[in-house]
């Protein structure tokens, strides 16, 4: 589903964000990305949905290569992905159902299919009764559920979550995480960046740990932090 091959990314102001990072995530996996702030977690996620392009190396996501893709094809890739953020990124002046329906409308879904789909998604995330509420009327956990419903609107094969529980209390965190586990159980690959090591430990999922732009640990490859990596990867 995702393959990073010796990926290096540098930003003009902040310098090197990733250095020769290589890893592979298979279809249906649930993978944590951990590491301190500035380690490169968000950069990896941005590269996954091609909000940034690698300076060197190749990123392959859902069959699309960062090397071969043309600018016009980026939207096509993004329709196969769902992205969620710590700060939810909801449109405050629209209702819950409008926020979710928006994702379907702007990707050209048939008008008559939108309402039933939104209702189904709201049921899936446990917010069927909040369809007409505005984001400001919801708790943080509920807002993140709306964001998840929006991310699922186009039936993604991969969900990319950037600190989705970062702004939530413990109870809401558990709820949102369980929701992501359920989505994963239904076959969707999930990559989730998080600072919450307790959550990581409890979950017992594959973990990729980054530090200073390098991949320093991959529980899937049973490597230890600090151990030498043959090619800085996997």
């Amino acid at each position: 589903m995702i393959r990073f091959t010796r990926v290096t990314k540098e930003f003009p102001r902040t310098g090197v964000a990733l250095r020769e990072v290589s890893f592979h995530v298979a279809r249906g996996e649930f993978v944590f990305l951990t590491g301190p702030s500035g380690a490169g977690k968000s950069t990896i996620l941005k590269l996954c949905y091609l909000d940034a392009r690698p300076d060197a190396g190749e990123v392959r996501v859902a069959g699309t290569s960062s090397v071969a893709i043309r600018g016009n094809d980026v939207p096509k890739l993004r329709r196969k992905l769902g992205v969620i953020f710590q700060n939810f990124r909801l449109l405050e002046d629209r209702t819950v159902e409008a926020n979710i329906g928006f994702a379907l409308e702007v990707t050209g879904a048939p008008a008559d299919s939108i309402a039933p789909k939104v209702a189904r998604l709201l049921t899936q995330v446990g917010l069927a009764s909040k369809a007409t509420a505005f984001p400001s009327e919801l708790s943080g956990g509920e807002q993140q559920r709306v964001a998840i419903a929006r991310a699922l609107a186009n039936d993604p094969v991969l969900v990319i979550a950037d600190e989705p529980t970062g702004n939530l209390d413990e109870r809401a965190t558990r709820g949102v995480f369980q929701l992501l586990r359920d989505i994963n159980a239904a076959g969707t690959t999930i990559v989730m960046a998080t600072h919450d090591l307790d959550l990581v430990k409890r979950a017992n999922c594959r973990t990729l740990e980054l530090n200073h732009g390098s991949l320093v640990f991959d529980s899937g490859a049973a490597m230890l932090a600090g151990a030498p990596l043959a090619e800085g990867s996997t």
Partner: peptide
């Protein structure tokens, strides 16, 4: 930003 994220051209 949201439109781009969900794949609007």
């Amino acid at each position: 930003a949201i439109m781009r994220l969900v794949g609007a051209t």
